[in-house]
Design a protein around this nucleic acid. Structure first.
Lengths: 210, 210
DNA sequence: AAATAAATTAAACAAATGATTAATTAACAC
DNA sequence: GTGTTAATTAATCATTTGTTTAATTTATTT
């Protein structure tokens, strides 16, 4: 068995190679469609090393899943709790950050949403995502704006759905939109870059009407 | 081998039972995570009958996939080609129809988008979805409104992304939003019903700004 | 350098899974 | 009713796939 205390910094590379490969394959194909042999091959390691370092496919997956969710929430959490910026500015930042993030990691949204749906052992219950949102400055600023009559729709969930829907959905349905628009990857990405400016403007316009 | 010509209407029930079960399981778990034994059990039939009627898991899946995509596009196509209604009214109809449809069949969006991503043998290329949109009255009305200066953003793809993003995304990310809002199924569905009125209003507001 | 522990490998195992076979039952034609 | 075809079943096959084992190589310690 591997004893962590004895693993030196340099030796960690094998473990890291496996994790990097697992990340790629899990993100692209999901848990069920992923073969441990795919991961081993992509990592350039012997199949047995996967179990040597991570015990099982499921344990390895849990690690990847946790890190992925964390990664995805981090940038959002950072912006939402910034105490310098206005709500409007936060919408701009979230839009900008997420469009860049998903352009870099286009498989993450649908991976997360698919696997969360298949339960993933009640991941949603274990994460403090509700507290994170409720305690955020973003949330308080929204509440405040509602009270002041600056935002017509009072439910912050609608607000979140709108922002994320406008940002994330085009990526999730990318093959569909590429098909409809007859776009290649570059043209699609250009459209997404345009949305960095457009989405905040649209959100601002939506906010005011009832 | 099964000879179709000899299958009477009443006998079709076995074939239909298999298809109904396959639909359920494929929609809920996706191709890779579905076991043919799950389908057989759910259909209440002997496992061998699945291959007797449909040759293979993959062939059965292709049938379900095709029917699902068709079902999903049909209501949209109908609305988009109605020559009585204005563009504004079409947005209302699409919103209303899709929110009801997805509430009834909540697994379909993420099923379709997941499986399309895993290729599904280039389904996107085979479907005439691009032609369907380009030739639609919906598309022409949008073009016209752009020319007349009624719509600021000229790209119809952005317009489609916005409508579908606002409608479909909340369902795809349902576990997330239920978690954040602390909602049960009923409360979530109530929110979605609210959006039937809200989304068209929001879209209208977005249209005008640049 | 010898001894010990860790890392790596090839081979094999056991369970799961899609598919097939051969036998049986039910339906239908004449 | 008899014979023929279709439908159904239980059993089995052949692969795939996650995991383990036992041996070997590499690294570390003393």
């Amino acid at each position: 068995m591997a004893k962590k205390k004895l693993i030196k910094a340099e030796d960690a590379s094998t473990e890291e190679k496996i994790k990097a490969a697992a990340r790629d394959v899990f993100h692209k194909k999901g848990y069920a469609a992923t073969r441990t042999r795919d991961i081993a091959e992509k990592a350039g390691i012997n199949l047995a090393l996967l179990n040597y370092y991570f015990r099982s496919k499921e344990k390895l997956f849990d690690i990847i899943m946790l890190e992925t969710v964390f990664e995805f929430m981090q940038s959002m959490a950072l912006v939402m709790n910034d105490n310098k910026s206005s709500l409007e500015k936060k919408v701009e930042l979230i839009t900008f950050n997420y469009i860049d993030f998903i352009t870099r990691e286009p498989n993450i949204p649908i991976f997360m949403l698919s696997e969360i749906r298949n339960n993933a052992d009640g991941l949603m219950e274990k994460l403090p995502i509700r507290q994170l949102v409720l305690n955020s400055i973003f949330f308080k600023q929204h509440q405040e704006a509602v009270v002041k009559g600056k935002i017509a729709e009072p439910d912050p969930l609608h607000f979140l759905m709108n922002i994320l829907g406008l940002i994330v959905f085009p990526f999730i349905a990318k093959p569909l939109f590429k098909g409809i628009g007859g776009l290649n990857e570059n043209q699609f990405n250009k459209l997404m870059q345009e949305r960095k400016k457009l989405v905040p403007v649209w959100i601002k316009a939506m906010i005011k009407v009832k």
